[in-house]
Structures are given as C-alpha cells and as structure tokens.
C-alpha cells in the first residue's frame, strides 16, 4: 500500500466517523448537538447525565439504530457492487444484478399482502430475504449448465429475465393491495427504500450477515483481481474458478439480501460508490473492497441525514443518493484517466 492509499483510507475512516457523529447529533427533535454528543458518550460509557430522559431515548433508541442501519446497508451495498462488477467484468453490474433486489421486492410485497391484518415488523424483511435468496438460487440454477459450469453471460441474462418477471409479479401484488390504503402505502414505502423507524431489532437483522459477508469478500480480494484478468488466466494461476465464483455470488447475494430485506431497495450506492473509489484507488480489490465499504457507509449515512434535516418525508435516501451521487461520479469520471479502458 502506497502512502497515497494510506491517506485515502485515513480520510475515508475520518469521514465515516464524522458522518456517524453528525447524523446522530443532528435531527429534527430539538437536542443541542453538543449535548447530543455528550449523551452518546454517556450511553457508550454507561454513565448517567442531567438531561431529560426523552432526549436520551431519541438519540439512543431512535437515531442511533437508524444511523447504524444506514451505515451497514451503504457499506454492504457498495462492497457487493464492487464484487459484482469484478465477477461480471462489467461496469454496469450492481448488487441486484442477478435478481436479488427484484426477488426481495416480490417477497416483501407478498409478505405484506399476506400479513395485512397481523402487522409485524418482521413481515417485510422475512419475505424480502426469502424472495431475494430464492430468486438468486433460481437464477443460478438456470444458468448452471453441464458439469456445474456457470457462464457469466448466461447468469446475467437469466438474472434480467427472472428479475423482470419478479417486477411484474410485484406490480400485480401491489395493484391487488391498492384497495387497502395502509398496506399499499407500506409496500410503496418499502419499494422506495426507507430508514424510517429502523430500530436495534433491524440492526440485529442486518449486522451479522453484512459484517461476516463483507469480511469474507474482502479476504478474497486478490482472487477477484486474478479473476479480472480472465477465467482461463485465473485457472492457470491456480484458482478454482467455478468454486470461487459460486462462493463469491453466494456471499454477495447474502449481504445484498440482508440489506435489502431491512431497508428496501436503495439504488445507486452499489453502482456509484465502487466506481468512485476505483477512480481514486485503482482496481485492486484488496484495497477497493474495504474502501467501498467505508465510502458507501459514509455516503448513505449522509444521504439519510440530509433527508431527515430537510424534514420532507417525501425526500427519500434513494433520491438523495442519486441526485448527489450522479454529479459527483461524473466529476470523478471527467477528472481521472484511471477510468475503465475505452
């Protein structure tokens, strides 16, 4: 790692810590920022302070889990986006490319539809998780030919085909539910991606998969690098390509499914964060994957904070990520020559 890379990592870490602190300290409920930091510190160290109990409740039970959920989701999506772009050697690849997101959407709306009367926090996440993994498994099974060989192009196309069928079914279930206003609203809210009301329970849902998966993927950075030089090339350098690709897809899908299940579909982070960091750090996945996690986490925490501060419930994190991320990405693209070769 060069000194420049080390500086980039330092900057990314500082930015993430700052984003976490600001996002927790700032909000519409009127707690002065300085006191907010005090309360956080006390909560971490277990001390009591002389401030109203509701302020501590707002911070520790409302804002903090929401911020941490955003960080894990942003980090997980950015990292799996980078992994998918490497597996498919395709700059357009994003975490949902083989049907994870569309399967999750179908699972979530179905679960919400079926559980309309017995409302549960777990309905949408459970349905989404099952839908995501089920859809991925079907796509993978469809694409695997003789002797367990999986062609990436087939995988990609099968993902698109199954994905569009899932979207159609999602629309159908949504249309069925529009008569029940509250259920329809829940579904739309989930489909647009939302951090509203995410609790420590949600953190517990997303935390283990995201962290274990991200760690596993990061540890396989050099294998991914070799895979980027071509399938035969990777085989000849000693990599069991079919097994590696299968494991990478399984872990990337698990992480994506975990994040999508908890917050719904958040676009753009998984596409743009890896690109932005690749332009800064180059394509070496040993550095790119952890950097993408840090960058994606910072990005989504910031986007969510902006949504809350704007006090417009119509402004969704997904809208902010696209509106802010698009121009930033274009700027980087114009600046750097370390782009995709053309």
């Amino acid at each position: 790692m060069t000194r420049r890379d080390a500086l980039v990592f330092l900057a990314l870490t500082v930015l993430l810590v700052a984003a976490l602190a600001f996002a927790t300290a700032l909000g519409t409920a009127n707690v002065p920022p300085q006191r907010a930091l005090r309360i956080l510190w006390d909560a971490l160290s277990g001390a009591e302070g002389d401030y109203p109990a509701w302020q501590r409740t707002v911070l520790v039970w409302v804002r903090l889990p929401r911020v941490i959920t955003a960080a894990l989701v942003g980090g997980g999506l950015a990292l799996t986006g980078a992994v998918m772009q490497a597996i498919f050697r395709n700059p357009m690849a994003e975490p949902g490319i083989i049907g994870v997101s569309s399967g999750a959407a179908f699972g979530a709306v179905t679960a919400l539809y079926l559980s309309a009367t017995t409302f549960s926090m777990l309905a949408a996440p459970t349905g989404a998780f099952i839908g995501a993994l089920g859809c991925t498994a079907v796509v993978y099974w469809l694409a695997s030919g003789a002797r367990g060989r999986v062609a990436t192009t087939t995988l990609l196309l099968a993902g698109i085909a199954v994905g569009s069928m899932m979207s159609a079914l999602t629309s159908f279930v949504l249309a069925l539910s529009l008569r029940q206003w509250e259920v329809g609203r829940q579904m739309l809210s989930w489909l647009m991606g939302d951090f509203e009301g995410r609790s420590w329970g949600h953190v517990a849902l997303v935390f283990p998969l995201t962290l274990i998966g991200s760690l596993w993927l990061t540890l396989h950075g050099q294998e991914l690098n070799v895979l980027l030089t071509g399938e035969e090339s990777a085989l000849s350098l000693g990599i069991d390509v079919p097994a590696l690709r299968r494991n990478l897809i399984i872990w990337a899908s698990l992480v994506t499914a975990g994040t999508v299940a908890v917050v719904g579909a958040i676009g753009f982070v998984g596409l743009i964060a890896p690109h932005a960091l690749r332009l800064i750090l180059g394509p070496d996945n040993r550095r790119l994957l952890p950097a993408a996690f840090l960058g994606g986490a910072t990005f989504l925490v910031t986007a969510d904070m902006l949504c809350r501060l704007a006090s417009l419930s119509e402004l969704r994190p997904g809208v902010v990520t696209s509106l802010v991320g698009g121009p930033f990405f274009l700027y980087l693209l114009m600046q750097s020559k370390r782009a995709w070769a053309g």
Binding site: Q222, L228, T229, E232, S233, S236, G282, W340, A341
Partner: peptide
Amino acid sequence: RVAVVPQNTHLDFAFTVRDIVAMGRHA
C-alpha cells in the same frame, strides 16, 4: 508447474504492470 501465456491479453481494468506480474506469485 505449468504457466500459460494466453493469446488474448486484453484487460478492462487499470492494474499496473507490476500488479499483473505479481499475480504470477498467487499459487
């Protein structure tokens, strides 16, 4: 034991020359 120099050496990803050569040490 057996190294291969492929016919098609096209690459889409901007690795440095040294990165590519170092991949030879992977095994």
